[in-house]
Design a protein around this nucleic acid. Structure first.
Length: 588
DNA sequence: GCCGTTTTCGGCCCGACTGTTTTCAGTCG
């Protein structure tokens, strides 16, 4: 049973307990345990075998026993019993905006509503509006939410919303009544997918700014509009929330609405140690039983000062997931995160020799215009016939063209180089699409899986490790093959693959395409600890695709990576050594 | 159900908005 499946089971238990009206803190305990598992990078089966599950923060004796039962038997008696009390369709009702456990419980007990389809019928027949605590407006909103859910998935890829979000921030900042403005929420933390877009602005005239926001031309629905909060829906379905505060409150509000929730809770506890309570507006002296005597309240003008007041270094938004950043900031040991302009080049780009849109020269020029010193071409290999993969002959011809282009740059005195490479298919059994002799003629090789996605985890892991052990394989492309919001990655033992990469000096790609962002940011901190190097590659299929490096850098930052962890921060003259390191070590 | 310099009991983050109420419950973030 996978870690994700176990976490999902715990989430489901939390929902069922909620429906039963259980103690909210018990519910939260299951949710926290599920989240702890999602962030856990160790081997669960191993921990279960050693009886160490309870050592995971947020997993106690009871949950540890349940996880062990799931791992050993693939089932959990407690969960099965809970489930038997409710119809299976009840779960999907949690996906409807405006419905929580209490309302779902009432709908189920009073009207027998056990699915979204039931709910729609009950709303249309007027039964929902008659329930105590419900009304006409609620019934209407639920119908709207059902339609909304059917029209749009609950999440949006970061790449699909980053542009509009940036424009909205710029417009807010340009508004005369706005003092400061920023994006917030998971968008500011650069999560790979976001549910809605959060914005925070400071102003002396919240009503005017709120009106401005609610009347943007691309707004199709005003969901809520109060004196401090406006929520709208844009064309395309994405919801945008704007919080309006006085400028003195801005650092607190920005921080609060950037989250994450878990980061916040941990930070509040630090404030309490100083006798302070923190909310989205200010620090205040903590009150209540057992509150410590408050230290003098600090004067805060920005987020950096807020962290400083709590004895910590400034924590970049990408790190605010409560995965160790609080402790690191308190110990002044936060990593110096990579920045976009640290990149000196990039790899894994396509040309019209396979399935790209632009020529070799056009891709190289686009990379030069971005200020890069080198570009690695990696067109598809012959087995990817659907992507016009190149055979040995065409690959050799492309190599000639690249040598000619490099010669021209040299003659012109242009300090720019194109590296000849390939995105070599990894065949089902772990063999490569080209012989070692062919690969030896290239500057670098990126290996990717483009077929046979459904192998069992152990077999898939062996398949990748076999490629990693090949001395000519420089880096592994989009490691899990996921397509965000479309296709989950294939089953893979990522830590085992990272171990193999570390042992052989094989680079792992951080594929910067907003559809992939693969390997996932949650694994990079572990990779860093194991000494695995990263290459941030755009997998560009046209010149504009090079811009996706921005997303890759954002994910690398989320994964705690520094410029020292990312090989394409190395300048021309040094990167060649890294590309050849595996062959050199093995005497090839 | 978890956790512990408040350690085996008693806390556990907290404010805004909506709709249904006539003082508040539910949901959301």
């Amino acid at each position: 049973m996978t870690k994700e499946a176990i976490a999902e089971t715990l989430e489901s238990i939390a929902r069922l307990l909620d429906l039963k009206g259980e103690n909210p803190f018990k519910i939260r305990a299951y949710q926290q345990a599920a989240r702890a598992l999602e962030l856990h990078t160790g081997d669960l089966e191993d921990a279960a075998a050693k009886g160490e599950l309870g050592e995971i923060e947020g997993v106690g004796k009871s949950v540890a026993e349940k996880i062990a039962e799931l791992i050993q038997t693939g089932k959990l008696a407690y969960f099965e019993e809970l489930k038997s009390g409710f119809p299976p369709g009840l779960f999907e009702l949690f996906g409807i905006n405006g419905l929580g456990a209490k309302k779902i419980k009432a709908l189920y007990e009073k009207l027998g509503v056990g699915s979204i389809a039931d709910l729609e019928v009950a709303c249309r027949e007027g039964k929902v509006a008659e329930l105590p605590g419900f009304g006409d407006k609620t019934a209407h909103k639920l119908l709207g939410a059902i339609a909304q859910r059917q029209a749009n998935a609950a999440f949006h890829r970061l790449g699909d919303v980053a542009g509009v979000a940036q424009r909205m921030v710029e417009e807010l900042r340009a508004h005369p009544a706005v003092v400061r403005a920023s994006e917030g929420g998971s968008l500011r933390r650069r999560k790979e997918v976001v549910r809605d877009l959060d914005f925070v602005a400071s102003t002396k005239d919240p009503a005017v700014v709120g009106e401005f926001f609610a009347h943007r031309p691309d707004v199709v629905e005003v969901i809520a509009q109060g004196p401090t909060k406006v929520a709208v829906r844009l064309e395309g379905g994405v919801q945008c929330d704007l919080r309006l505060v006085a400028d003195a409150e801005y650092p607190y509000a920005l921080h609060h609405f950037t989250g994450s929730r878990e980061h916040h809770i941990a930070l509040r506890n630090r404030a309490l140690e100083r006798g302070w309570s923190i909310n989205e507006y200010r620090f205040s002296a903590a009150t209540g039983e057992g509150a410590r005597p408050a230290q003098p309240l600090p004067d805060i003008h920005d987020e950096a000062e807020l962290y400083r007041a709590l004895g910590m270094d400034y924590i970049p938004p990408e790190l605010r997931e409560n995965t160790g950043e609080i402790e690191a900031a308190a110990a002044h040991k936060l990593p110096d995160l990579i920045e976009l302009d640290n990149l000196r080049g990039t790899f894994h780009c396509h040309t019209n020799a396979s399935d790209g849109h632009n020529t070799l020269e056009e891709m190289a020029e686009a990379a030069r215009e971005l200020g890069l010193q080198y570009l690695g071409i990696g067109d598809h290999s012959k087995s990817s016939f659907q992507a016009n993969g190149q055979d040995e002959r065409r690959l050799a011809e492309q190599g000639e063209a690249i040598r000619a282009l490099n010669a021209r740059y040299e003659a012109e005195g242009t300090r720019f180089r194109v590296f000849a490479g390939v995105e070599c298919d990894l065949l089902k059994d772990g063999a490569l699409d080209f012989s070692d002799e062919v690969l030896a003629g290239l500057d670098y090789v990126v290996v990717s899986v483009h077929g046979s996605f459904s192998l069992p985890e152990a077999e898939m892991t062996r398949r990748l490790i076999r490629a990693i052990e090949n001395p000519y394989v420089t880096m592994m492309g989009h490691l899990t093959g996921r397509l965000l919001l479309e296709r989950a990655g294939y089953a893979l033992d990522v830590p085992a693959v990272l171990d193999a990469a570390a042992a052989t000096g094989t680079i792992i790609e951080l594929n910067a395409s907003p559809w992939r962002l693969d390997m996932d940011w949650r694994w990079w901190h572990l990779a860093q600890e194991k000494g695995v190097k990263c290459a941030i590659n755009p997998d560009a299929h046209r010149t504009e695709g090079l811009q996706d490096l921005w997303f890759g850098v954002a994910q690398a930052r989320k994964g705690w990576l520094t410029r020292g962890d990312v090989v394409n921060c190395l300048p021309l003259g040094k990167i060649e050594t890294v590309l050849g390191a595996k062959r050199t070590a093995l005497g090839k």
